[in-house]
Design a protein around this nucleic acid. Sequence first.
RNA 1: CGGAGUGUAGCUCAGUCUGGUAGAGUACUGCGUUCGGGACGCAGGGGUCGGAGGUUCAAAUCCUCUCACUCCGACCA
Length: 440
Amino acid sequence: MRLSRYFLPLIKELPTDAAIASHRYMLRAGLIRQNAAGIYSWLPLGRRVLGKIEQIVREEQNRAGAVEMLMPTIQSADLWRETGRYEAYGPEMLRITDRHGRHMLYGPTNEDMITDIFRSCVHSYKGLPQMLYHIQWKFRDERRPRFGVMRGREFLMKDAYSFDLTREEARRSYNRQFIAYLNTFARLGLKAVPMRADTGPIGGDLSHEFIILAGTGESEVFCHADLVEMPAPGHVDFDGDLQPLVDARTALYAATDDMYDADEFAKIPQDRRLSARGIEVGHIFYFGDKYSAPMAAAVMDGDGRPVHVKMGSYGIGVSRLVGGIIEASHDDDGIVWPKTVAPFGAGIINLKVGDEQTDKVSRDIYDRLAVAGIDPLYDDTDDRGGVKFSRMDLIGLPYTVTVGPRGLGDGVVEVKTRATGDRQSLPPGAAIRFITGEFA
RNA sequence: CGGAGUGUAGCUCAGUCUGGUAGAGUACUGCGUUCGGGACGCAGGGGUCGGAGGUUCAAAUCCUCUCACUCCGACCA
């Protein structure tokens, strides 16, 4: 992409309304614009990041055996009345009346709807297990939206739902998502720690929150430091026994403040005790027949008797992750995107647009990086050098190639690694090989 | 929902107490000089002062109502 043709509205001043780093940088770097409290437009750069995160989540869901579908944002109140949640949910649910006076709502979640779909389509245990997911915009009318997309009212969620005949089989579905989450967050460049969670109003007795550690986290967390350093499982056989992998991740103590037990925490060796602030980016739980019973979602078992399916649901806050990643990865100059989610893989700064040689070399590097799938952003504007450098730092692309007459006089360009600040002078060909190698 | 604030130029804000021709910086446009880490000079364009009503000869400023947004707290399948 050529910057001169891109839409990248940056803000130089510190936005006074934004209290935390991710919110400030998302506004300043032109990722989002607020339209109403807790409701944002995703500008081109932000849309790219959101899409990359979404795609990684999708790939890991597919790998774990989940099947993608899509449910609507607007739902009829009828299903919610069946489960009693229409009355129970409270003012966080945005209620809408259509032209015929029918009660509708902007979905805050989809358990009721997916259960309805399932019950009308699957009637035999032979149709189990089943794991469906969708990535969809949701709305919760938060009393006080804040922190930009971290606590917005409209937000993008991945929600998966599992259906099994027995609790034991449901546990296997739960484990599949558990492992998929570890791999997903690792690919996003995050250290996410699973923590035993309160199952809350939705009920059930098997639940974990996935928390990333960041100074501005919304809640305090306590855990064994080894958990943070444990590598993700990576490629595993999702049809095999995942229990040992899950056990390894749940044996050590980890809890959010509402589940905190000082005595348990004290049992951790002193130098391994970690108390920090965390951001919840995923939540998985098993809730059995909480919805299948009231909604009569049953299948015939092998003996011809109807059994309410055992369900679980598994959420990842996709839009929240954009803010979460920035909270975990930024410095005084701007965002530092992990390679896997960066809106562009590399930036190219042409310091003297209009100069035959810098134009040619810049263009050549651009073409070759593009062919290599790096998806470069070429700064071909006639802004001054300083403006270009600080702009690249702000938007946080992993690598920047600077092409200027001075360097080209010696046959070199400069490659800067955003995360470390390292700069190396290399011939153009070596610079391209270095960057493509980093993405291999 | 309790508490505290803020709405004036695209953005950041001053002016409101004490009513009297709407300002600064930045951004933007033009010209010139600059050009390897957010340049400089000159000239210019841009605001029904969140909205409605009221008081007054006169309202950004005083009064009433209202809307929006922000921050702290509580809340947060």
